[in-house]
């Protein structure tokens, strides 16, 4: 079981790192959906499988809402940045490495503070929260910002699942995740008519 938990942590790390360095929205949403697999596994340690499945289903629904909305918009021409590997990505990878070091150093302290919680849950949660803060700090795009917030909440929900197992809290958190996705979809579509009019 412990080994699967560490695999989940690794999956979370890879997904969040990819979220940070991917410019293509399709890949961003794929990584978002993947990280919810890790979240599901780390949550089911403290919750029942059926309760933890709420996180997975909600996460995938969120990714679907954002994906369908983004796909309906006009495809944006690939910018020069997307083709330049060195521009921005190198900085983001270095920043992510620093964030990872921070997570390694802080995890044992948090484990001591929260009785009954294991190292993989804390590490997975902190990776999600720190990397999402990094993502939020580096973007002004609605889609990236919403993905960042969803990732932050996913990290928080892993730790919170260890201390609170009320059904109502799970339901409200799922509602907020779905609400964030709807807000993201709204922000993505807002102003698109104006843009279209300007180009015509």
């Amino acid at each position: 079981m412990q080994i699967i938990s560490w695999i989940a942590v690794f999956l979370i790390f890879v997904s969040t790192l990819s979220l940070l360095i991917t410019w293509d929205w399709r890949w961003s949403l794929v990584h978002l959906a993947l990280l919810y697999l890790g979240v599901f596994w780390l949550t089911q340690i403290h919750w029942t499988i059926s309760m933890a499945a709420i996180k997975l289903v909600t996460g995938w629904m969120v990714a679907t809402i954002l994906g369908i909305t983004r796909a309906a918009l006009d495809p944006e021409p690939a910018s020069a940045l997307e083709h330049s590997w060195s521009h921005g990505r190198l900085f983001r990878i270095l920043a992510a490495a620093l964030a990872f070091l921070l997570v390694i150093s802080v995890t044992p302290t948090i484990v001591k503070l929260l009785p009954g919680i294991g190292i993989p849950e804390v590490a997975g949660s902190l990776i999600l929260m720190v990397m999402s803060l990094l993502l939020l700090g580096l973007t002004t795009e609605p889609l990236q910002a919403v993905i960042g917030l969803l990732t932050f909440l996913a990290g928080f929900e892993i730790i919170y699942a260890a201390v609170e197992n009320a059904t109502l809290v799970a339901a409200l958190l799922a509602t907020i995740n779905l609400g964030l996705a709807l807000v993201g979809a709204y922000l993505l579509t807002a102003g698109t008519d104006e843009e279209r009019g300007a180009t015509e």
Binding site: T140, P142, L187, T189, A190, G191, E194, E195
Partner: peptide, 13 residues
């Protein structure tokens, strides 16, 4: 805060 006919700005994000 962000009307549907206008692109969202930095403030609302």
């Amino acid at each position: 805060l962000s009307p549907p006919e206008k692109k969202p700005g930095r403030g609302v994000i």
